[in-house]
Write a protein that binds this DNA or RNA. Structure first.
Lengths: 237, 237
DNA sequence: AGAATAGTGTCTTTCAGACATTATTGT
DNA sequence: ACAATAATGTCTGAAAGACACTATTCT
């Protein structure tokens, strides 16, 4: 089969083709805070700096950009992500010392079961870091801005969607879920109001016969109803 | 000055660089409905089909992707857009018969003063069309999906933002603005509630000594307060 | 005066937030 | 019994939506 690729014409080749990559902001809850998975760059530019997992589009393998993002995620971290969303494209002449480049940035939410990165040859080069700008290392390229953008998007959507369930294991309790909302939003939520909201959104169901241990009343376990995607609440949390 | 462009390395050139473009969905209110500006393609592929105004990134001229979008807008339509936002990136192996391509899609809102496209050599090839899928022509590439995506984004944001002011002239009345909201949302809004919302959002101010003619009580003219960007309401319209 | 639309006021029902109460476990 | 947290119930103030009423212009 003949390889099919964009043809070179006068129009398409009048200007150099910018270098385009795909980068993924992988967010998870570790140690009770929001963290981002970073990799230490093995090559120039920014060799040795921490950066987002990223790579090039493989036109032969990747059906679309999202497929590229999923492949990169799998290759670099072995994470099978339950939630992946296109964040934004970033492209200008300053972000990469090699010249004008652009990246399709995605953001992924991962559950605790999947939190530990792939153990392989370069396992030491993969690590979780807090998303707090003052407590994380200096990032390569414009990746600091991309991470901040992802966190802002998450915070914004948490106000009116069910996104936080993707940061929890398959089975979770309502107090668990409320704590995630409170953690990301940075404020307390009234228990009664929170449970009313979850009940009317009607996207979780109790799991029979299971509970959890501590020296107090156990909480009912829930899971997301099958086949349900992200729920948009009709008002703010 | 030496031209600086992304260097070819083993890593960057292992896979062909996808062709990347920028396309702009220009939306305006004409004849009381939401319309989109389309151009008739002068070259293959899809020669003669209607398509979104688009083009290539010019690394030497364009500081970033948004600058490319603004340049394309200006070149093809002479519209100085008051509102431009990145919509989404679209990229896969099927959207262009030449192979794997991607586009950075932007969407722009234009005011009636700027509605008439550039009068030039190819003025006949530029025209406004309704956004209704059944009443517009078949579009080139995946541009139908991109237009639908832009309209969906607009509808969604109109619920809780001041975006519609960009579809009106500089000076407008509150009934004008309400009609735009109703037109885009496709439902009636209570006049009293609407005005309360606009008042508390506090982003418009009355313009002194001006009114408007008809055989009834004239309406106060308003304009957007200087320096104010898009307002996000704290609840839905 | 009447038609037509702009602009404001009132009322009622709903709902979110605060808080209190009951429930269920382990020690 | 007590501590601790889960889960539910109650009350109250605010506000959204429905609707009525007043205001201003032209014919």
């Amino acid at each position: 089969m003949q390889e099919k690729r964009p043809e070179a014409t006068a129009e398409t080749e009048a200007y150099p083709r910018p270098l385009v990559t795909v980068d993924v902001v992988i967010l998870g809850l570790r140690e009770g805070e929001l963290q981002v998975l970073l990799m230490k760059r093995a090559a120039a530019p920014f060799k040795g700096r921490w950066a987002l997992p990223g790579g090039y589009i493989h036109p032969q393998e990747d059906a679309d950009i999202e497929a590229s993002a999923r492949r990169i995620l799998a290759e670099k971290t072995a994470i099978v992500t339950p939630y992946l969303e296109q964040l934004q494209a970033f492209g200008d002449q300053r972000r990469d010392p090699r010249g004008w480049t652009a990246t399709f940035a995605y953001f992924a939410l991962v559950a605790p079961e999947q939190l530990e990165p792939k153990h392989g040859a370069n396992a030491a080069a993969v690590s979780w870091w807090t998303v707090q700008p003052q407590d994380r290392p200096t990032l390569a390229f414009d990746h600091a801005a991309i991470v901040d953008c992802a966190v802002a998007r998450l915070r914004s959507k948490v106000e009116y969607t069910s996104l936080p369930v993707h940061l929890l294991p398959e089975k979770f309790t309502l107090p668990d879920l409320q704590r995630v909302y409170e953690q990301i939003l940075g404020r307390k939520i009234d228990k009664s109001a929170f449970r009313k909201r979850m009940a009317e959104a009607d996207f979780v169901e109790p799991v029979e016969g299971e509970r959890r241990l501590a020296s107090n009343r156990p909480a009912q376990l829930y899971r997301v109803k099958r086949g349900l995607k992200t729920i948009f609440f009709d008002r703010t949390i």
